[in-house]
């Protein structure tokens, strides 16, 4: 059963750093006053035009297994194949910042006002990502209120570290730090569950997976539709699955067949971010 979520514009207005990242400006880089002014103006347009909305539906592992196969066009092996069977909770989601924002971006490009349109595009992209984070956090809080976090032992097991043994070397540099699963050492936090979102079109999940996702989730209820090429309208929308479980389940090396073609390796940042948040 899909649940329509209330998301306010204020919640999804992005940080300027996130906007600049979409403009290709590295974090911490000084930004000229005129670029700052463009960003401020685009934020204002965004505030006027945004109509964020979202929809969420919890899904069983069995149903997700069928859904994830889609039309059989995924890569042979994908991270999600390995992750979801070890999850505690799964939920499909779709969020959008609304049609009007996308229309204004498209109008800007059509009228060759590339400067403003591109900045608004970046604001909207960063905002859509913010909307995902908000819904993700809500789902995590709700789900973890229903079931306790994994124990340290569970984390170790799920990360492939035998009970009572020191983590194997390949984990010592990342799993130990991220998951706090070392058997030695002093001041440690309690392990908590983590959530990450995975979307069709990324990490081996073919974009055609959108069809099954839409059949189950019905994002049309919040105004998100699917085009022939499996792309969403409004353009600034994001869909996928939230996978909640011990943080260890989200660990994977970027050695899949498709990783060699990926130049962003965002998965590394996402995994690292588990340490900081959900």
């Amino acid at each position: 059963m899909s649940e329509i979520l209330t998301i306010t514009t204020d919640e999804v207005v992005p940080d300027r750093e996130a906007v600049f990242e979409h403009q290709g400006i590295p974090a911490g880089r000084a930004v000229a006053a005129e670029i700052e002014a463009l960003c401020t103006a685009a934020m204002e347009v965004f505030r006027q035009a945004a109509a964020p909305a979202g929809v969420l539906a919890e899904i069983s592992k069995a149903d997700f297994a069928t859904l994830y196969k889609g039309d059989g066009q995924n890569e042979d092996a994908t991270p999600v194949d390995e992750i979801y069977p070890r999850a505690k909770h799964l939920a499909l989601f779709a969020v959008t910042v609304g049609e009007e924002v996308s229309r204004r971006i498209a109008d800007g490009f059509k009228s060759k006002d590339f400067v403003d349109a591109c900045m608004l595009d970046s604001v909207a992209s960063a905002s859509a990502e913010r909307a995902v984070e908000i819904v993700q956090q809500r789902f995590l809080e709700r789900a973890t209120a229903r079931s306790p976090a994994a124990t340290k032992g569970e984390h170790r097991r799920l990360a492939g570290v035998p009970t009572g043994e020191t983590p194997v070397p390949q984990f010592s540099s990342r799993a130990e730090k991220i998951l706090d699963i070392s058997s030695t050492g002093g001041d440690r936090r309690s392990p908590v569950d983590g959530v990450l979102a995975y979307s069709p079109g990324y990490c081996g999940w073919d974009i055609s997976g959108q069809r099954k996702l839409f059949e189950f989730l019905k994002p049309e209820t919040v105004g998100i539709s699917l085009g022939e090429s499996c792309l969403m309208q409004p353009l600034k929308s994001v869909s996928g699955v939230f996978i909640i479980g011990p943080k260890a389940i989200h660990l994977f090396d970027n050695c899949y067949s498709f990783c060699g073609r990926c130049t962003t390796h965002n998965c590394r940042d996402r995994i690292r971010a588990l340490d900081a948040g959900g």
């Binding site: 403009q23 290709g24 400006i25 590295p26 880089r29 000229a32 005129e34 670029i35 463009l38 060759k112 590339f114 400067v115 591109c118 900045m119």
Partner: peptide
């Protein structure tokens, strides 16, 4: 060379036009 980024290119292109 990563000395300027998307906004500067767009602003320059606008000036050129």
């Amino acid at each position: 060379a990563n000395e300027v980024f998307i906004p500067e290119v767009l602003i320059a292109a606008r000036a050129m036009h």
